[in-house]
Design a protein around this nucleic acid. Structure first.
Lengths: 250, 250
DNA sequence: GCTAGTGCACTGGTCTGACCAGTAGGCTGC
DNA sequence: GCAGCCTACTGGTCAGACCAGTGCACTAGC
């Protein structure tokens, strides 16, 4: 029975093959950030396709954040150092299209931030502690100026903690999710009547978190950071979603 | 003083404007999943551009996972329900290009899975508990067959927990990160000499986690799930990264 | 000799028009 | 009534063209 076993062939579009090749070269490191691709006209010779096909491939690579092209540039497209821009884009789309609720986003942020604090308490260096000190000091002065300045300084603190966690993935994801959350509700907070009280309470909470990180007490830092974030955002989360956030608290 | 204040104009490429318009329509919901876009030739009339421009825009939208086109389809491109495929792609690229270590990935997974268990213990329904029961039963029978079957059943359990957490973002991210981790080391585990012991130990641990979820003890379920994952993967994580994982344990 | 300005050669962005291989659905012949 | 063909579409690809930018070599003026 049975002659040769044939497999279904998947028709692969020409531009996809080009994307694969260039993407592979970037991931393998043979095409390092800062290097230039050949020009589109050169690529169409190398790949033996038309310029439209080359361009469609470049569009895909650009959408993935791997390359950038600039009109008039005598060199070809530039290979970019990886940035989470594509990650950010797809998460933002997810949040909008799939209608992620604020509760889900805040809950996720509490989880990530808490883990970052847990790790940072164990792994932080003296330099990183100084950065966190500086960030809280910046929050204190910024609170006198505007909510926007305060928010920026607050970001600085959380980012310092995330860096100190030593986990790049954690750092990138906290960054992405944070900016989505801030985008969603920054204007609400900015116009909140109890804004000043919220800010000064937040500063006190951050100081407690930092003290726990400095003391090397990871579980405490993690618990305090969750509480800090909960109290800062809970007023903007619909009541029916608050139970899930409270479940994360301790 | 004086004179009108001019703003720098950013040149916007035609295809980007098209992407923005279509993307906006999808995010606003006026273009629902399953609906069809007009054909490329129709779009070039509506947008008053050439077909190349339309196609480049469609390539970007396709790379972002918003639409899909099929040659020969008498309808135009199909608007897709959002899938985390784009998220997956960018995270995979991040892992490869930015050289995320296995330790970072496992640590991240421990964090997410732990949070999912914490929430699931509080929010799970009876139906969801039954799904978890079934998943563990499947793990037990699959362990007799092959590692691949076991791994698939294991995924089923974690996915059931993530669903029960009620946090879609958590669910999607656990899914994405898990598949990256499995991609990295599944063949190592499959050929591990103590594979059978690892599987049966893993089953026992999963049963303990499920018991805690059933009892509604979130913190316990979270702690046990972290430990389960730690013990399952620690053998494959370089020694210098293990400290960070241990810091997550309790 | 050195600098400021001018071309030029090249880039990417866009357009036009064409061909091909698929697909779906209507039409025809049985 | 149904099987099979035909046609009018689709997306994928190609070829060639034009334009507005950019960087660099060259040149004219100091």
């Amino acid at each position: 029975m049975g002659g040769p076993r044939f497999e279904p062939v998947r028709t692969v579009r020409a531009y996809e093959r080009i994307v694969e090749q260039i993407e592979g070269a970037v991931e393998a490191g043979s095409l390092a950030p800062g290097q230039r691709l050949p020009s589109e006209r050169e690529l169409m010779v190398q790949f033996a396709v038309s310029r439209s096909t080359v361009r469609e491939a470049l569009r895909v690579l650009q959408a993935r954040g791997l390359v950038r092209s600039r009109p008039g540039d005598p060199n070809g497209a530039e290979v970019l150092p990886f940035t989470p821009a594509a990650l950010h884009k797809s998460l933002t789309t997810l949040a909008r299209v799939d209608q992620l609720s604020l509760g889900e986003l805040v809950g996720f942020r509490m989880t990530l931030d808490s883990a970052a604090n847990l790790l940072a308490a164990r792994l932080r260096t003296e330099t990183q502690l100084k950065e966190m000190d500086a960030a809280i000091a910046a929050m204190r002065t910024a609170a006198e100026i505007s909510y926007e300045a305060f928010s920026a300084a607050d970001v600085g603190f959380h980012d310092a903690v995330a860096r100190a966690s030593g986990n790049k993935l954690l750092q990138i994801c906290t960054d992405v999710v944070r900016s989505i959350v801030l985008n969603l509700i920054s204007e609400k907070i900015a116009s909140a009547p109890d804004r000043d009280a919220l800010m000064s309470q937040s500063i006190r909470h951050h100081e407690e978190v930092l003290a726990a990180v400095r003391a090397g007490d990871g579980p405490l830092a993690a618990r305090l950071s969750r509480r800090t974030m909960y109290e800062y955002y809970v007023g903007y989360v619909p009541a029916r979603e608050r139970e899930a956030l409270r479940a994360l608290l301790d």
